[in-house]
Simulated assay, not measured.
Amino acid sequence: MRGVGLVPEPLAQLPWRIILLVLAIGGFGLVVLYSAAGGSLRPWALSQGIKLVVFLGGAIVASRVPESWWKAGAWPVYAGILIALIGVELLGAVKGGSQRWLDLGFIRIQPSELMKPAIVLAVARFYDMLPPNEIRRWGAIWPSAVLIGLPFVLVMTQPDLGTALMIGAGGATVMFLAGIPLRLFAGGALSVAVAAPLAINFLLHDYQRNRILIFMDPESDPLGTGYHISQSKIAIGSGGVWGKGYLNGTQSHLDYLPEGHTDFVFATMAEEWGLIGGCLLILAFILVIRWGLDVGQRAESRFARLTAAGLATTIFFYVAINLAMVMGLAPVVGIPLPLVSFGGSASMTVMLCLGILMSIDRQNRRAGRRGGL
């Protein structure tokens, strides 16, 4: 039996550096949630800690799934989640004015979250099957556009602008990495720019429209639509370089900062841990994303390369959109900071992405050992 000491080979083969880094991010998130609750494990830190352990266990299980299984299951999984999104539209549970969940009695699931990695797998599978000489033809564009467009529209109707944008961005990233010409992306960007005013005025709900418009000047309505962004920037700025000290934040403890344990958890953290804490947290996420991109670069198959890069950029979009949102650089679109914000959906999605990345990494290392024989 091969292994390292008394550690079984399957455990020894795991990328423990990245697992420990993810645990460090999640553990720091628990520390922040403990403070956000006024120095209490309930109602957020304890629940989040249990979810973190469960989802990490799921990621480790996913890492043992062969790459070929992800490839074979890409389209069936996509189709199943697409059907679930249609089910949400017809039978979904309404919460907070949004219809995003399927209530199965024993569990409530949010199919739109699962679509984020599923769209990467589906589009990567399409381009893996496509002959290289077809990549610059129309037949390389419209099928993937349909694959992306269907869930995008269904999620927009829930309504969930942030998740819809992430689904579109994840699919478009795989298209770009597959080799779709830049001029087509430029044309698509121009079309979006032309259609954006119409979409803002006629397709978005009033609160979505106000969020997009107010982020350019949140001080114009500091007690209304711009309240979240204004209070978030106050919390981040008041933390300074070193922060006010753990458990000494005022914006969150005095309830000035809305959603300080979910979407705006970074502002809660920055007030107490300052610029130093914020930079270290961002660095940790950068290391995770870089590892994911490295996994893609080492992959042998086209499917694995596109999937790994797409999943790594999905994690990047989570982090980048949330940070831009809490700093007032983007509209408030309800994207949490994964592994740090309270809630299971984003953590589950990111852990699933990491599990698939670890599966591809395992395949890479096995191929490397065979090549060294």
Rank of each mutant, 00 (worst) to 15 (best):
residue 4 V to A: 11
residue 6 L to F: 15
residue 8 P to R: 06
residue 8 P to S: 04
residue 9 E to K: 14
residue 10 P to R: 12
residue 10 P to I: 06
residue 11 L to E: 07
residue 11 L to V: 09
residue 13 Q to T: 09
residue 13 Q to C: 13
residue 15 P to F: 15
residue 16 W to K: 08
residue 17 R to C: 12
residue 18 I to E: 10
residue 19 I to Q: 05
residue 32 V to R: 00
residue 33 L to T: 13
residue 34 Y to H: 07
residue 44 W to L: 11
residue 44 W to P: 03
residue 45 A to P: 01
residue 46 L to H: 06
residue 48 Q to M: 06
residue 49 G to Q: 02
residue 51 K to W: 12
residue 56 L to R: 07
residue 57 G to P: 05
residue 57 G to A: 07
residue 58 G to I: 15
residue 60 I to K: 11
residue 61 V to G: 09
residue 62 A to T: 07
residue 68 S to M: 12
residue 69 W to M: 15
residue 74 A to Y: 01
residue 78 Y to H: 09
residue 79 A to M: 10
residue 80 G to K: 14
residue 83 I to L: 15
residue 92 G to N: 06
residue 95 K to C: 10
residue 96 G to M: 07
residue 96 G to H: 04
residue 97 G to N: 01
residue 98 S to V: 08
residue 100 R to L: 11
residue 105 G to W: 13
residue 120 V to R: 05
residue 121 L to A: 08
residue 124 A to F: 00
residue 138 W to Q: 00
residue 138 W to N: 00
residue 141 I to C: 05
residue 143 P to D: 04
residue 156 M to W: 01
residue 157 T to F: 13
residue 158 Q to K: 04
residue 161 L to Q: 03
residue 168 G to Q: 01
residue 173 T to Y: 01
residue 175 M to K: 00
residue 182 L to R: 08
residue 183 R to A: 13
residue 184 L to S: 11
residue 189 A to K: 12
residue 190 L to D: 10
residue 190 L to Y: 03
residue 198 L to E: 13
residue 199 A to K: 03
residue 202 F to A: 13
residue 207 Y to E: 07
residue 211 R to I: 00
residue 212 I to W: 15
residue 215 F to V: 04
residue 216 M to V: 14
residue 219 E to Q: 11
residue 222 P to N: 07
residue 224 G to A: 06
residue 233 K to H: 12
residue 234 I to V: 11
residue 234 I to G: 04
residue 236 I to K: 03
residue 238 S to N: 13
residue 241 V to N: 11
residue 248 N to R: 09
residue 250 T to M: 09
residue 251 Q to V: 11
residue 252 S to H: 10
residue 253 H to G: 10
residue 253 H to I: 09
residue 259 E to W: 00
residue 261 H to R: 12
residue 262 T to K: 04
residue 264 F to H: 03
residue 265 V to S: 04
residue 267 A to F: 00
residue 271 E to I: 00
residue 273 W to F: 10
residue 273 W to M: 11
residue 273 W to G: 08
residue 283 L to I: 12
residue 286 I to Q: 14
residue 295 V to N: 02
residue 296 G to T: 01
residue 300 E to N: 11
residue 301 S to G: 04
residue 305 R to N: 03
residue 307 T to S: 02
residue 310 G to K: 00
residue 313 T to Y: 12
residue 315 I to L: 15
residue 315 I to P: 15
residue 319 V to Q: 09
residue 320 A to T: 10
residue 325 M to W: 00
residue 327 M to E: 10
residue 331 P to R: 12
residue 332 V to C: 07
residue 339 L to F: 04
residue 342 F to H: 05
residue 346 A to D: 05
residue 347 S to V: 12
residue 348 M to G: 08
residue 350 V to G: 08
residue 351 M to S: 08
residue 352 L to Y: 14
residue 354 L to N: 08
residue 361 D to A: 10
residue 366 R to I: 10
residue 367 A to T: 13
residue 368 G to C: 11
residue 369 R to Q: 14
residue 369 R to D: 06
residue 371 G to C: 07
residue 373 L to T: 07
residue 373 L to Y: 15
